[in-house]
Design a protein around this nucleic acid. Structure first.
Lengths: 339, 339
DNA sequence: ATATAGTTTGAATCCGCATTCAAATTGCTT
DNA sequence: AAGCAATTTGAATGCGGATTCAAACTATAT
């Protein structure tokens, strides 16, 4: 039942060579006679031998493990998509993904040491924000750290972010161009950078164009919170005629609250715009106008930062990827200037 | 920049003890003087020492790594939920998750050896089906293997599944009770066991109650495929007045196709029932009647199979978890027998 | 045939920690 | 105070491969 694992010594013995030779056979750059390699590999295959990644990692100081740390990813399909893109790409590079979930009650900093004990080659942090000290500790020890859609000021780690501020500005322009006056912003929860930047770009641009009164309502990055926040926002004396939600998933809740609970017509009486372009955004029921944030592109960029093609890995870089306004049916279109 | 990692020898030296003593200080059951332990741990903390999990795994033959293998998980939030539940629970047990994605072009069996090279303590396979040989190889080597919602006949691995056949039967009863006659089933893609069992239970029960004509249409576990399949199904001479979709996500597509493309009223002219109870199912737009399959419960059960509280791990077990019909507004309710 | 450079190979060692086993220490008993 | 068990500790070793270095062998040049 419990047969011992096959080791390189077993293969060596059966193949009539020494253990280092087996090791070399499995090293693509190993100095070994091609015929010997062939023989060793054949023997290995016969025994079902597979090098022990732990032992290998111990000597080479390289594990091919990449840790991915994510917060709550089940609010919408955006982060699951990000996760899958990461694992696909990393697997293709021969890396394996060590996955961690941060919980409200279990902050990043507590689990980081546990992660690092596995000697991961790199660290990807998405949708949760670690403390600067730890980040810098690992970065300075030579472990590349890349944050996704989060930044930590004054750190050595790199970050790849959607240009949230630009996204906010794009939405502001779209709403003003469509002639909206009473405009609201539905925030995400907490002081996540993404949330704040989307709001900042949005508010800044509105003000630049002379719109000062922005209604604010707090959501929590969930459908339900969007639904509730929309009710609070719309069920008042002077309700907004346009709502920009910090995330698509809240926009969906907003639309449903408006349409089904309050009987408000979209986009005739209310424009709703989201952020992310999750799959449901283009379902006919919603047909949500939104800022597209490409998971593929974010991940691609993040991964490229991990492979130090540059000799010394860059530090403290923040790469901003521009989003794109996807105009669909949930928001009034810009006036054609025909008055 | 690249300072060497702190090892147990460094701690030992600074603490004035031997390396084994450091090791014992970190072992909760280690035979060590409490005061010595305290001193060692303090020194370790001062140096920022963290035991190397690789080295530890090499000697103990236990890595606290659990591999999770999943196929395409971004079609709906069901599998992301499963994944998050797994990582949460496993993390709580001190385990780490090694995540793998199977791709159409990259079958499970090819990546399994790579996974096993990391000496994972257990293997969880969801939404993709591996070959029996490999499964048995690892199981017999002492690595517990648990499959989720998949089974492989005649294998030593355990499986935890929603009782798909029962689910199908529940839906059949609900539709017949509501007086439906022209009933259709929308399949998932391929010969996944879940899909086939849902269909079997559904068809069997319909036949048992005298309904022989079941329309079949093939979907692919996506919103779009559900949309398309619904069009094919409804845009014919004698269209069904009830559709049971093998997954919620297809049911959503079906509803939108019916309502928005074909102008069919739900549930007055058409009943739609799904399977899973994903979050969107209870959004007001959809209000989808469905079979609830609890991710939490599936995961909980699967994890309990990994911790061999039983001395010898059970083999070849298939645990079926009953689903529950959640009646919402997308399907006509059962007639109250008032004729 | 002999010297020399280039290939291949194996013995020894290391990676960082856990564990075995014997030695040293401590505590109690009588 | 001697005797013995229970604690506590350290030296040595192993886990499974990678790597260094020197030895053995091959090929080429003179």
């Amino acid at each position: 039942m419990t047969q011992r694992k096959v080791t390189s010594y077993d293969v060596a013995q059966l193949a009539g060579v020494s253990q280092p030779t087996v090791s070399r056979a499995f090293d693509p750059n190993g100095n070994i006679n091609p015929s010997t390699r062939e023989h060793v590999l054949a023997t290995a295959a016969r025994l079902g031998y597979q090098p022990n990644a732990l032992a290998r990692g111990l000597t080479t100081q390289k594990t091919d493990l990449v840790a991915i740390i994510m917060g709550n990813i089940t609010r919408s399909l955006f982060y699951p998509k990000v996760l899958v893109e990461f694992t696909r790409r990393l697997q293709a590079l021969g890396k394996q993904v060590l996955l961690f979930n941060t919980h409200e009650t279990r902050p990043v900093d507590e689990i980081l040491p546990r992660i690092m004990s596995y000697q991961v080659d790199a660290l990807i942090i998405a949708s949760s924000t670690p403390g600067r000290e730890l980040i810098d500790k690992y970065t300075s020890m030579g472990t590349p750290v890349v944050m996704l859609n989060r930044t930590v000021p004054d750190t050595l780690a790199n970050a790849v972010c959607s240009d949230n501020e630009l996204g906010g500005r794009l939405v502001a322009d779209a709403l003003l161009d469509a002639g909206h006056q009473k405009i609201a912003f539905m925030t995400g929860v907490g002081v996540t950078a993404t949330n704040a930047l989307r709001q900042k770009g949005f508010a800044d641009r509105l003000r630049e164009r002379g719109c000062e009164n922005i209604l604010l309502e707090e959501g929590a990055y969930t459908y339900d919170s969007g639904y509730e926040a929309a009710l609070r926002l719309l069920d008042r004396d002077n309700p907004p005629d346009a709502i920009f939600c910090a995330a698509d998933i809240m926009a969906l809740g907003t639309m449903d609250a408006a349409r089904f609970k309050l009987g408000i017509k979209i986009p005739d009486e209310l424009s709703v715009i989201g952020y992310d372009d999750i799959p449901s955004a283009r379902w006919p029921t919603y047909d949500l106008t939104t800022i597209r944030q490409s998971a593929t592109q974010l991940v691609e960029t993040a991964v490229s930062l991990l492979t130090p093609s540059h000799d010394l890995l860059p530090t403290g870089q923040i790469i901003l990827l521009p989003g794109e306004l996807i105009q669909r049916g949930s928001a009034r279109l810009p006036l054609q200037g025909e008055s």
